[in-house]
Design a protein around this nucleic acid. Sequence first.
DNA 1: GTCTATATTCGGATAGAC
DNA 2: GTCTATCCGAATATAGAC
Lengths: 226, 226
Amino acid sequence: MTAPTTPQVEETITTRERILREASTLFAARGYYGSSTRDIAAAVGIQQPSLFHHFPHKQAIFQELLSYSLDDSAAVAEYLAGASGSPAARLYRFLVEDFRYLMESPYDLRSIFNSGVLEGEEFEPWGRTARRLHVAVAEIIRQGIEVGDFIEIDVNFARQAVSGLMLETIRERSLGEKLPAQRPTRTADFMLRALLTDPDRIGEVATEACAIEGLPLYRDTTTACD
Amino acid sequence: MTAPTTPQVEETITTRERILREASTLFAARGYYGSSTRDIAAAVGIQQPSLFHHFPHKQAIFQELLSYSLDDSAAVAEYLAGASGSPAARLYRFLVEDFRYLMESPYDLRSIFNSGVLEGEEFEPWGRTARRLHVAVAEIIRQGIEVGDFIEIDVNFARQAVSGLMLETIRERSLGEKLPAQRPTRTADFMLRALLTDPDRIGEVATEACAIEGLPLYRDTTTACD
DNA sequence: GTCTATATTCGGATAGAC
DNA sequence: GTCTATCCGAATATAGAC
C-alpha cells in the first residue's frame, strides 16, 4: 500500500567502474602521467597487475574517460549549432546541458580538459572530437554576433572563455560537496551576461533555451532546465 | 649621425634561461610528470645530465617557474584587496596586470595553474602562495558585492570564473602568435561585464582602475593600462 | 659547461598459480 | 577475478673525464 521508501536502485559498483572513478580523481590531481597504475590499483584496493584484467593497458582507462566526457558533448554542440532559434538561447542550452552532465558525472573529468595529453598521438581520435566540439561552440557564438545577440568579440576568445568557465567551476565538484542544482543555470546566466549586448534579456533567453527540443541527449532528462 | 637601427638590447639568453623556457612549454603540453629531463634537454639541445649543472634537480625547474608566476601576482592581489577605491576598479586592475604579466612572460605558464601538482608536498610553499592569491581575489569580489558594484553571486564561483578565464585565454599565447596589446583590457572588460550590476559602468571602472597607483609591480610599467 | 658512463629507482605490462 | 613473481624499459640523478 505504501510506496517503496526509496525507489533508488541499489547501485552495485563493479571493480571496473571503481577503477574509472579512482583513476579520474588521480588524473585530475596529478595528471595522466603523474598517476601510476600502482597508485590507481592502491586507491581501488587491488594489486597493480589486477588492473589489466579490466583494461588492456593504462591508456584504455583514460580513453574511456575521454569518450565519456567528449562524445555526447560534441554531439549536442553540433546539434545546437545547426538548430533553429536564437544563437543566445542555443548557447545557453549547451552550457546548461554540458555543465549538468559534468556535474552529475561520477568521474572527476578535469584532467581531460586540462592536459595537452589530448595532443598526443595515442589519443588522436579524441583530440579530433574535442576540436569538433570547439568548432561547434565557436559557430554558435559566431552566429550570435552576426544577428546582434552578442557583443562584437573575438570568437575564439569567447569560446575559450566558455571552456575556462566550465573547467574551473567543475573543479569545485571534486572537493566533495554536492553542487547546488541551480548551478548549471547560474553558470549559463553568468556567461551570457558577459556576452549579450543586452544583459537584461537573460530571462527570455533562458526561457527559450529550455524549450529547445530534440537534443541527442546523454541520459533521460526529466526537466529541461530548472 | 643616424640613430642606431634598433636600440633593442641584444638579448643573450643563457642556457639556464633556455631550460626554463623549453621546460615550461613541455610542462604545459604534457604536464610536469609527463615531461622527462631527457625531453627538456633535447629541446634545449644538450645532453640530459647537463641539466644538473644548472638546476639541482627537476623539481627546481618547476619551482622557479612557480615563483615567477605566483609571487608577484599574489603581492599585487593582496595590495589591491587592501587598497582604496571601488572594488570593481581594483578587480579590473588586477586582471589587467596579471593578464599582461602572463602574456608578456617568456614562459608558457599554463601548467602551473592547471595541475594539481601544486598540492604535492614538494611544492607546498607555492601551494600556500596560490591560496593567498585566491583569498585576496575573493576578498575584492566580496567587497564588490557588499558595496553593490557586483551582482549577488557566490564569491568562490566568481573567483574561479576569473581564474578559468585567465587560464584559458593565455592558452592562445602558447600557440605562438603574439596576442594583441589590447587583450588584457579586453579580458578585464569581458569579466567585469559579467560581474557588474550595471555593465554600462565599465568605462568609468576602467578609467578609475588605470589610475590606481602604488602597486608592488613586477616590472617598470610605462603605461598603466592601454 | 658539457660530455660519457652508469647507478638506482620506478612504471607498465606479462606469466602463471589459486 | 585476484594474486605473486618478474621482465623490461624509462626516468632521475651521480661520477668523473675533457
